[in-house]
């Protein structure tokens, strides 16, 4: 079977999660990766070196600036009929483009799969991960987004061939006006080995410095609950949860986070979970590997201190 993967990248590198997605794709057949953007050749070279990739298609054109959902979907449609499966990441990028592809092909997309059972059967979380549904698709082409945390990253290989693919039509429907991307020295949330997350209990944006100091000590990424983002303590892209980012690091430290199901949905597959909360009844403790009932303003500086010792 022929599988097409729409790879997310920043021009130079593949985004974290794409190699996990390629592990899922390789279970389904021969993988062709499509790397499209204003400048994408370095990312295409990177894709060629991921184990299991048979071929890379590179498309570069100004019309793929920004998210460009309409033009990207139109590009995928120029080659879609050659494939039995079309996969993309279950990230803001993949969620933006692939449903357009699916609807245009008259197929029902299978969102955010966490396991591949066979060529037509997949497992996907529903109800914020509280119900895992096994679904079988009868569509002729399967359009799928993949939850990166559910698959191991693929390894490396000698580079597969990279071919140019002509740009698709410019539909001219939207105009990119710019992006405000957060710059941080810390690891990216979805790629981090350790994440330190703060919630409403932090009390203010200023107090998030406590989280950042601990994160820096651990070489960790910083995350936040929705309440912390809504309160303006942290920008939106830090939100972990059902409607934010799905993460599964080796260590997740939740500080001043109560543990609402929507938050748990985004982090409960982490290997080790630590929770620090002053409320001994906080639901976060139900998923914690280690939990400490204490005031965070005392415990967090102490923890940072202890790690320096």
């Amino acid at each position: 079977m022929a599988v097409l993967v729409l790879a997310e990248h920043d021009g130079k590198q593949l985004k974290p999660g794409v190699t996990n997605l390629l592990t899922a794709a390789a279970k389904l057949g021969d993988v062709t990766v499509l790397v499209a953007g204003t400048q994408a050749s370095e990312a295409a070279q990177a894709a060629a070196k991921v184990a299991g990739v048979k071929k890379v298609l590179l498309t570069e054109a100004p019309i793929y600036e920004g998210s460009a959902a309409e033009n990207l979907a139109a590009l995928v449609l120029t080659i879609a009929e050659q494939y039995s499966h079309i996969l993309g990441p279950a990230s803001a990028y993949g969620k933006n483009v692939l449903p357009r592809v699916a609807a245009s092909l008259d197929v029902q997309q299978i969102s955010e799969i966490s396991a591949v059972e066979s060529a037509d059967t997949f497992v996907r979380p529903t109800y914020a991960g509280n119900a895992m549904a096994t679904v079988q698709s009868s569509d002729r082409i399967k359009v799928i987004t993949v939850r990166a945390t559910a698959f191991d990253p693929a390894g490396e290989q000698a580079a597969a061939p990279v071919e140019n693919l002509a740009p698709g039509p410019d539909l001219g429907l939207t105009q990119f006006k710019g992006a405000e991307l957060s710059k941080s020295e810390r690891p990216e949330l979805t790629a981090a080995r350790i994440i330190v997350s703060g919630g409403r209990g932090m009390g203010s944006a200023e107090n998030f410095k406590l989280i950042e100091a601990l994160a820096d000590k651990l070489g960790a990424a910083v995350g936040a609950s929705r309440a912390a983002v809504d309160s303006g303590f942290m920008p939106n892209e830090y939100q972990v949860g059902q409607t934010g980012k799905i993460v599964a690091p080796e260590l997740y430290i939740a500080i001043g986070i109560s543990g609402a199901i929507q938050h748990l949905a985004g982090m409960k597959d982490s290997k080790v979970i630590v929770a620090i909360n002053k409320d001994a009844e906080a639901p976060i403790f139900s998923v914690a590997s280690y939990w400490l009932v204490d005031d965070l303003f005392k415990a967090v500086p102490e923890l940072t201190q202890e790690l320096s010792a």
Partner: peptide, 29 residues
Amino acid sequence: RLKTLKVQEPPSRSAGVKVADVKELVAKL
């Protein structure tokens, strides 16, 4: 277009332990 073959609970996490203080937490980690 999709047939739901089954719906299951997610795997549950094994019970965690309460630590007394930061020192014990760091030792466990």
